[in-house]
Design a protein around this nucleic acid. Structure first.
Lengths: 148, 148
DNA sequence: GCGCACTAGTTCGGTTTGGAACTAGTTCAG
DNA sequence: CTGAACTAGTTCCAAACCGAACTAGTGCGC
C-alpha cells in the first residue's frame, strides 16, 4: 500500500547510497582504484570468473572486462587458465591485490561506520534484516543488465 | 563497530537499489523517459531551478542541462525567464509533464510496492525512520558531485 | 556607473560505458 | 568425427557522461 510511500523510501535510499559513494571515492582514488574497480576486486575471491562477477554485480560483461583489465594492469588481480574449461578465465587476487583490498575496506569502513554509527546495534541489525528480506528470493532474475 | 558489517550492509543496499532500478527502467521507457530524466521530472516542482536540481539530486550541472533538454524537447517541462534574476531558468512541468509523471509514478509504484510489500507496515515505517536517521543533518555537504 | 568577484546555465570535448558483433572453446546429436 | 547450438570473454564503436572552460547576469565597493 501507499505507493508514494514506497517511492519516497526508494528515493531516500538512493540518496543515502550516493552520499556514501561520493564520500568514499577520494579514499579509493588514493589507493589507485576506482569505486567500480573496488567492487570487482572485492568480489574476485567469491566469484572466480568474469561471468559470475557480471551476474553478481549486475554489470554488463563488457564493463567487467574493462575493470578487470585495469585491476590486472595494476597487478592486483591475476587471470589464469581454467584447466576444466578453457573458455574461462579463473581469477585470483595477487598478494598486492589483497593488501589494496584490505586497505580499501579499511578506508571505506571509516565512511560506512561514520554513517552507520548513527544507528545503535539493534537498529543496525534490524536494518540488515530488512534489506535481506527485500533482497531475498525470486528476484534473482539476474542477467546482463546494468548495475552500480 | 563491526566495519565489515557496515560494508556488507552497504553492498546489500546497493544491490537492492540496482535491482529496483533495472525493473523499473522498461516501464519508464514505455512512457518515453529515461530513469535519470524521471528523477529530474519528479523534482522539477520542488526545485524550480537547474542549480537546485543539481544539488538535490547530486548530479553535475552539465548532466542536469542534458536531462532538462530532453524533457523540454519532449514537452514535459517548460523553461521560463525568472523576472527576479535573469540568469536563472525558472522551471515548470507542463500539463503533459504532470500526466507523464503521474503515470511514471504509478508504474514505478508497482515495482516499489512489489518489493516493499515484503515488509509489513511496521517494518516499512521502521525502515523509513532508519533511512531518515542515516540521511539526517551534517552530511549536507552537497556540491557538484555525481549521483544516481 | 565602472571594475571585480561572484553565480546561473550552457557548451565543448575527452573519458567511460555498455550493446552488439565477434572469437574461442564446449557439448551433443547423428 | 563432424557441425549446429551453445557459453565465456573480448573487442568495437556509438552513445552517455561530466569536468572545465565559457557566456551571461548580478551586486558590491569605490
Amino acid at each position: 500500500m501507499a505507493d508514494d510511500d514506497s517511492a519516497q523510501l526508494w528515493k531516500l535510499n538512493q540518496r543515502l547510497l550516493t552520499r556514501v559513494m561520493n564520500a568514499a571515492e577520494p579514499q579509493l582514488a588514493a589507493l589507485g582504484i576506482e569505486t567500480k574497480e573496488f567492487f570487482v576486486l572485492d568480489e574476485v575471491d567469491t566469484c572466480r570468473y568474469p561471468a559470475e562477477l557480471a551476474a553478481k554485480l549486475m554489470l554488463p560483461k563488457a564493463s567487467i572486462t574493462t575493470y578487470l583489465r585495469n585491476l590486472v594492469a595494476a597487478g592486483l588481480v591475476r587471470r589464469e587458465i581454467d584447466e576444466g574449461d578453457l573458455r574461462r578465465h579463473r581469477l585470483a587476487t595477487t598478494p598486492r591485490g589483497r593488501e589494496v583490498l584490505e586497505r580499501a575496506l579499511a578506508a571505506l569502513a571509516g565512511e560506512f561506520t561514520t554513517m552507520m554509527s548513527r544507528l545503535d546495534a539493534h537498529e543496525r541489525a534490524e536494518f540488515r534484516r530488512t534489506l535481506l528480506k527485500l533482497l531475498d528470493t525470486g528476484s534473482d532474475v539476474e542477467g546482463d543488465r546494468r548495475g552500480p
